[in-house]
């Protein structure tokens, strides 16, 4: 029993980190361009195909260089998409922006089918095998997901907090007019943000390739659940998105113990709807409310 729980916990945390990465990736674009990237699902898939189909199979690269190349390719693709779609659309009506990104997803999807075909690809000897942790058998890919995600989050925090580019990105996300008045090139900053976001998408595709195999629908669920994670954590807030993702991953996995497996995927969406209707600011809102309440009671005690 203990082994099962441990196993569920590890895979839950791993999936939680995947959701968190998804949430981070679209929150970056949301903050920078003010639009929700509904095409991220297809970009994750594309990342998987670029890595497995092109870098591993066609070019025959070893794993690490293949990952690096795939991420770089996706980032370049991100800059192109930013220039063509995200930057021109940042001032259009919300409705058009939503539909345009959705259509972009369909274009990418059809492009992927055309280039790599609609067959499922499976990388060989990549993050495969199992390891023993405290008597539980855990798939190695889950362990790698956790490690890599933590590294990515740390690096991203470093970029946003310590580097000039990252600070510019934060400025743009807070106030575009003020940022441009301070001499920040808003468009370049947006393009870099999109590039980073697409790079993260690619890494998600790479990490989940051994779990879901690379195919058209590999990322449908994780992309949608990434949205759930964002809502649960608090929209537009990076640390909250990570918390939301982890909670979602673990809760979902353990719900599988109690509920019939039919409802496993429904749990995430139901959780999101509940949060949206009753805690629209997510965990951040709940935390703020609690803090305010404590402050209020302390004030009352003092007076």
């Amino acid at each position: 029993m203990q082994a099962v729980i441990l196993q569920l916990a590890v895979s839950g945390i791993a999936m939680g980190f995947v959701y968190a990465l998804v949430a981070i990736e679209y929150t970056l674009i949301w903050n920078a361009c003010g639009l929700l990237n509904f095409s991220h699902e297809k970009i994750i898939t594309m990342g998987g195909y670029v890595f497995v189909g092109t870098c591993l199979f066609q070019l025959g690269l070893p794993n690490i260089p293949a990952i690096v190349l795939a991420v770089i390719l996706l980032a370049i693709f991100g800059i192109a998409i930013a220039a063509l779609i995200f930057i021109p659309l940042r001032n259009s009506t919300r409705l058009i922006a939503v539909v345009a990104t959705v259509m972009l997803g369909q274009v990418i999807n059809e492009g992927v089918i055309l280039i790599w075909g609609s067959v499922a690809l499976m990388p060989k000897n990549f993050l495969s095998g199992v390891s023993q942790i405290l008597g539980a058998t855990v798939s190695k890919s889950y362990v790698y997901i956790i490690i890599v995600s933590i590294i990515i989050i740390a690096v991203l925090q470093f970029i946003l907090k310590k580097t000039k580019i990252g600070k510019a990105m934060t400025c743009v996300s807070q106030n575009k007019t003020a940022a441009s008045l301070m001499g920040i090139n808003v468009k370049v900053s947006m393009a870099i943000t999109v590039a980073i976001s697409f790079g993260i998408c690619c890494i998600i595709g790479v990490l989940t390739a051994p779990i879901f195999t690379v195919k058209q629908q590999m990322s449908t669920m994780i992309a949608l659940k990434g949205f759930c994670a964002g809502v649960i954590g608090g929209f537009g807030n990076l640390p909250a998105a990570i918390a939301g993702g982890l909670i979602l991953g673990v809760v979902e996995n353990f719900a599988g113990l109690i509920l019939p497996s039919v409802f496993k995927d429904v749990v995430a969406f139901a959780l999101m709807v509940v949060f949206m209707l009753f805690f629209p600011d997510g965990l951040v809102g709940v935390k703020n409310r609690i803090q305010k309440h404590i402050a209020k009671s302390q004030m009352e005690k003092l007076s």
């Binding site: 929700l36 939503v98 949205f227 759930c228 809502v231 139901a270 709807v273």
Partner: peptide, 9 residues
Amino acid sequence: VYFSLVTIA
């Protein structure tokens, strides 16, 4: 946008 997400859910 949140509403779009609810409807997707």
